[in-house]
Simulated assay, not measured.
Amino acid sequence: MRKSSSYDEMAVRKQFDRICKLALKGEKIDYRRHIAYRQKHEVMLSELSEKDMGRLFTVDDYGVENQWFQVLGYDIEVKDMLIAEALQALSEKKRDVVLLSYFMDMSDAEIGRALNLVRSTVYEHRKRSLELMKNIMEEHTDEKKR
């Protein structure tokens, strides 16, 4: 006896249903494995530290627009044009004190020995130089606003 066509149709549907369920189960496993991999190997940009963010790009710096000063055999590069302009307005001794102090990280005593000055004189030169530079930079900023 031959089985009815409705029985054959029902068997095919059950087989198809089983195959679909197995395929979906496999997709679910693959998807979860993929998500776990991404969580392990990927990081959101907002979660990166400044150091890590800095490694994501580079900036070409050719030094064409930078100003160079020479003090005691050191070549000191000043990248900000406004600061460079203010430094040029200072006397040589005051400029040397500022450059050695802030760009070469030298103490007042070290600067004094290098320039044959008393430590208190180095302090006064730096203090007055910073005041002059501040005034020059403020004037330049005010001129740009106008």
Rank of each mutant, 00 (worst) to 15 (best):
E131P: 00
R113C: 00
K51L: 12
K21A: 14
M81H: 12
L82A: 11
L82W: 11
V43M: 12
E50K: 15
E65N: 12
G26V: 05
D96H: 09
L100R: 06
D52R: 08
D61M: 11
H34L: 15
D80R: 08
E110Y: 01
E42F: 08
R126A: 00
M10E: 14
Q15P: 00
D60T: 08
G26N: 12
F69I: 06
Y31H: 11
Q15D: 05
G73M: 05
L99C: 02
K3N: 13
I29P: 00
V43W: 09
A109I: 02
K40G: 00
K93Q: 13
A84P: 00
V59W: 03
R113S: 05
V71T: 14
L117H: 06
Y7C: 05
N135W: 03
D96S: 15
K3V: 15
S6W: 04
Q70E: 15
Q39R: 11
S91A: 12
E65Q: 12
K134F: 11
S49W: 04
I83Y: 05
D105P: 01
K14T: 05
K93F: 01
L24C: 09
L82P: 01
L22I: 14
T121N: 10
L117P: 03
D96R: 04
S49T: 13
Y102C: 08
T58Y: 13
A84E: 01
D8H: 15
L72F: 03
N135T: 09
E27A: 08
G73N: 11
M53T: 06
L24F: 14
E47I: 08
N135P: 00
G54L: 01
F57T: 08
Q39H: 07
L132V: 08
Y37H: 09
L132K: 13
S4I: 03
L82E: 14
S49C: 03
M133I: 01
L99Q: 02
N135I: 03
K28T: 05
C20A: 10
K14L: 15
R33A: 12
M104L: 09
S49M: 08
